[in-house]
Measured scan of single mutants.
Amino acid sequence: KEQQNAFYEILHLPNLTEEQRNGFIQSLKDDPSVSKEILAEAKKLNDAQA
């Protein structure tokens, strides 16, 4: 469930490039146990690119 939530949120971050988004999603698939950390990174990058 946590992985699904992170997946959904990353898909809807407006400021990520397609490449960045795909990278985060691939990381989620590779290691779902760190989905919280991956989501935090994605949000940080999204904010930095706002």
Rank of each mutant, 00 (worst) to 15 (best):
L39S: 04
L16A: 00
A40M: 13
K44F: 10
K36L: 15
Q4P: 10
P14M: 12
A6F: 13
I25V: 12
D30P: 04
G23L: 13
N5E: 11
P14S: 07
Q20P: 00
E19H: 14
N15E: 04
T17I: 02
I25L: 08
S33C: 05
F7K: 04
N15W: 12
I25D: 01
L39N: 02
Q20V: 03
F7H: 15
E37G: 09
A40H: 10
N5H: 12
R21M: 08
E37S: 09
L16R: 00
F24N: 00
V34W: 14
I25A: 04
F24Q: 00
D30I: 08
A40T: 15
Q26V: 04
L13W: 02
D30T: 10
S27Y: 08
H12V: 09
L13R: 00
R21N: 01
I38K: 04
Q3A: 07
T17E: 03
E41I: 13
H12F: 12
F24A: 03
K29L: 07
Q49A: 09
I25T: 06
E2N: 07
N22M: 10
A50V: 10
A40L: 06
A48L: 15
E41K: 14
Q3C: 03
L13G: 00
Q3F: 12
R21H: 02
Q20S: 02
E2H: 07
N22S: 13
Q26C: 06
K43H: 14
L39R: 04
G23D: 13
E9V: 05
E41S: 14
G23W: 09
L11T: 11
I10K: 01
I38T: 06
E19D: 10
P14T: 13
K1N: 15
E18S: 11
P14L: 10
E19R: 08
D30N: 09
K43V: 08
A50F: 05
T17V: 02
Q49K: 05
E2T: 07
I10G: 01
E37F: 12
S27E: 08
P14V: 08
N46K: 01
D30A: 11
K44D: 06
E9N: 02
N5I: 06
A48W: 05
K1R: 05
S35T: 14
L39Y: 06
E18L: 10
L11Q: 13
N22I: 09
N46R: 02
S33E: 10
L45P: 00
S35E: 15
Q26P: 00
Y8I: 13
R21A: 05
K1S: 15
A40W: 11
N46W: 00
R21S: 04
A50D: 12
K36S: 06
A50W: 05
I38E: 01
D30G: 11
I25W: 03
I25Y: 06
N15K: 04
D47R: 07
H12L: 15
A50R: 13
A40V: 10
D30S: 09
K43I: 14
A40R: 10
K44H: 10
D31Q: 10
L45C: 02
K1L: 13
L13Q: 03
F24G: 00
F24P: 00
D31F: 15
S35Y: 14
S27I: 12
N5V: 05
P32N: 03
I10A: 01
L28N: 01
Y8C: 03
T17P: 01
L13V: 01
T17M: 03
K44G: 06
D47V: 11
K43Y: 08
D47L: 06
A40S: 13
Q49T: 03
S35N: 07
I38H: 02
H12T: 12
E41N: 13
A42W: 00
D47F: 09
D30Q: 15
I10L: 06
Q26N: 12
S33P: 05
Y8H: 05
L45Y: 04
A50I: 11
H12N: 09
K43D: 02
A42K: 00
S27Q: 03
E19G: 05
N22R: 10
E2K: 06
P14C: 05
S33H: 10
Q49C: 03
K44N: 09
E2R: 04
I38C: 03
A6L: 13
A48Q: 12
H12S: 11
P14D: 06
K44C: 05
N46G: 03
N15C: 07
A6Y: 11
D47P: 01
E18F: 11
Q49H: 11
S35L: 13
Y8K: 11
P14H: 12
K1T: 15
N15Q: 04
T17D: 06
L11V: 08
E9P: 04
L39P: 00
P32A: 13
E19I: 04
V34M: 14
K43W: 03
E2W: 01
R21C: 04
H12Q: 14
Q3I: 07
N5P: 03
D30L: 08
A6P: 14
I25M: 14
P32H: 10
L45I: 11
K29W: 13
T17L: 05
F24H: 01
F7V: 13
L16D: 00
Q49E: 05
F7L: 14
L28V: 06
D47I: 13
K36N: 12
Q3R: 03
S35A: 12
I10S: 01
H12W: 06
Y8E: 15
A48N: 10
F7Y: 08
K43F: 05
S27C: 03
E37H: 07
H12G: 15
G23S: 11
Q20R: 01
